[in-house]
Design a protein around this nucleic acid. Sequence first.
DNA 1: CGTATATGTTTGACGAGTCTAATAACTGGA
DNA 2: TCCAGTTATTAGACTCGTCAAACATATACG
Lengths: 249, 249
Amino acid sequence: MSSAKAEDYIKALYQLREGEEGEEGKEAIAPSAIADVLGVTTPTVTATMKRLAERDLVEREEYKGARLTEEGELMAIETIRHHRLLELFLTEQLNYDWTEVHEEADRLEHHISERLETEIDAVLGEPTADPHGAPIPSADLEVLNEDLAPLSAHEEGDLVTIERVRDDDPDVLAYLDRVGVTPGARFRVTEIAPFEMVTLAPFDSEDRTNAATSTDASGETVSLPKAVAVTVSVREASRKTDADPAIAN
Amino acid sequence: MSSAKAEDYIKALYQLREGEEGEEGKEAIAPSAIADVLGVTTPTVTATMKRLAERDLVEREEYKGARLTEEGELMAIETIRHHRLLELFLTEQLNYDWTEVHEEADRLEHHISERLETEIDAVLGEPTADPHGAPIPSADLEVLNEDLAPLSAHEEGDLVTIERVRDDDPDVLAYLDRVGVTPGARFRVTEIAPFEMVTLAPFDSEDRTNAATSTDASGETVSLPKAVAVTVSVREASRKTDADPAIAN
DNA sequence: CGTATATGTTTGACGAGTCTAATAACTGGA
DNA sequence: TCCAGTTATTAGACTCGTCAAACATATACG
């Protein structure tokens, strides 16, 4: 029904809006942003957006950009659900490493039936997070908004638990895996250098349900440049906040 | 690299040639035959064949048809390997029934990477047959030619073991499943009526490694029309033939 | 053997997705 | 405020996969 390409554009639109998020999701996404993400030229984006607008998946604003309609948003969420279920399935059942899973999921997400989605979900026990710590939308396409602070927004001394790693680059992920920065790991922020370089010291490392068993070069301190630190989301654990008791895997 | 559609045409070519098999695979496959299988018109087939010929996947003979090149044949076998591994994977790991598996595999076969193919193969223990009893080509694309006789070519009194069911129609498969005609089951041919209607009586039913646990309405005799009987391949067990000891799974 | 019917190919059209080159609109700095 | 530079759109072209209608070839029967 809905072509792999269309889903790619819709998903890009959704995820770019998530990134900007100026409170109300009113901002139209510029063609150039989509072109960058998908590796195509801007004329291609304009042309494709016109077709998507005809199908009522997006609303276009000439010379500004486009945003998803209700319907488009549901399609995006469904695609993302497929993607994350597949990522988890590949790591849990097919010996993939969480660092390698992205590309395969990006292809398959467009081709699994509702039936297969359901079976995978069942086999995995209706999981709520993928191997990178990203939330898996529910079967009825609800997304629970757990707004996590990026690592780059923390202060020296804070005790944090890695919740999610947004980066998709296998090399970056492999590095983070090697140094133990994986979902569930705990660190203390020891230094915020200029240009926002963040340095972390391992804190303790039990309770790691997620991700591959990292080759834990533990005890070592880890420094991450800003570009990487912004893709790492953490939950702060030093100051005991009231609300967030249940974040199952 | 090679587009789902191209793989569909290549696979059709391969499987239609298998059907005819006038000894040497010299016969070109007619456009109309491919059009029937794929549900497209003949001009579409002609056009597509030209493109495939340009890529050296097929050789064309004007007004006759086309046949696969060496390269095209390998692509077909690879696609079929994907298909059959997926079928088995879906039944073994994802609660699919052998009667429902075809459609999903037909889509996914074009989108799994070499890596995923390998992992699925490993998880399944490098299987040699899919849930319908069809042989799975090996990783190096060798196809072992176990020429089985169709059920329609047997005589009254023959004791046979169901080896393979070629039909893909879920309704036909569901019927065969219900009456116990599944790979591994044994029957005695009790009657060959005119128009080649075949009647079978259950023989014994241990040793059934394959397929879903049929709701075994056993004891009952089964009659199959020719159209179905030709899609069922059997191994004859009454006259002990020398060569075929190891047909695992 | 020659023509009627089957089948195959060509032609012209279309939608999706893509590009480059040309043009139009917006935006920010002096 | 106006213009330069950036960004978006339009124009024109191309491939793949598809179709219907027109045309060409092959085959089979009388």
